[in-house]
């Protein structure tokens, strides 16, 4: 068990099953994904069978069982986004990154996720990179957008 997982679990002493999802969220927030070791550790902490935790982790969209890229790209595929051409945006990003949804690029830079609806329909189509939203995205903007996300990070540092 990593220190990060240990620290999360210490924040939930004597927790019951209803703490499972918050714990998994906290673990993922720290480690970026749910490793096998983390799942086993959570199971021991909550006295829950590993199969149950795996069942929960695979039920919800939020949980990842593989490490994400350094930049996490979410493409919204909600109704408004769909009507406004998000399918093309998604394929543009897939082409630019050469990965499919739920994959991480070979250099570990980007991971791609398709989100059912990100809730910013007024700006459709929407792409979120590392939690920052970009509205009115066009398929041809994909590459530039990804580059900008990289720069933003450099700028922030």
């Amino acid at each position: 068990m990593t220190d990060a997982v240990q620290a999360v679990l210490e924040g939930y002493p004597q927790a019951r099953r209803d703490a499972l999802i918050p714990i998994l969220q906290a673990v993922q927030a720290k480690e970026g994904y749910l490793s096998t070791e983390a799942v086993i550790a959570v199971g021991q902490h909550l006295k829950l069978p590993t199969s149950k935790i795996y069942g929960v982790a695979t039920f919800y969209n939020q949980f990842r069982l593989t490490p994400p890229g350094r930049h996490h790209v979410q493409v919204c595929r909600g109704t408004a986004c769909h009507v406004k051409g998000s399918a093309a945006v998604l394929s543009g990003i897939q082409r630019a990154l050469k990965i499919e949804p739920d994959q991480t690029s070979k250099d570990g830079e980007y991971s791609l996720e398709v989100v059912a609806c990100i809730g910013a329909c007024g700006l459709a189509p929407v792409v979120a990179i590392d939690g920052a939203f970009f509205g009115d995205v066009k398929a041809e903007d994909a590459a530039a957008l990804l580059a900008r996300a990289r720069e933003m990070e450099v700028g922030d540092e």
Partner: peptide
């Protein structure tokens, strides 16, 4: 939870 795609009033 507002999971309906196309709804964002709760947010």
């Amino acid at each position: 939870d507002e999971g309906d795609p196309g709804a964002f009033m709760d947010r």
